[in-house]
Amino acid sequence: MRRPPTRVVLAVVLGIALLVAGVVSHYASNSPDGLTSVAVDLGFSSSEQAAAGGPLAGYEVPGLGHPRWSGGLAGVLGCLVVLAVSTLLFRLRRPVSRAGAEDE
């Protein structure tokens, strides 16, 4: 069996991530998650302090009216930020190899 090149595998995984964050996320369940519903059931959810907010708080882009576009764009922007930050971080952490001689 022929194996697809690494960049094809990476592109497919990234494509799926963008599709999931940009499109599929619209169809995600709106029910409270496990911790939130336990907190409500057992009566300690009231101690939650309102989040300080953020540029994309609540996975919405402010000013974009339609929830599908707003949520999808927020998801894609989040993906791009995570990709940029982690790629930069991992590039910095890579051992410097010079002409066959491993550093470390």
Binding site: L14, A17, V20, A21, S25, C79, V82, L83, S86
Partner: peptide
């Protein structure tokens, strides 16, 4: 990391 971020959006 990006895939995990996207996956975490799907409740």
């Amino acid at each position: 990391a990006t895939f995990v971020f996207a996956g975490q959006m799907i409740n």
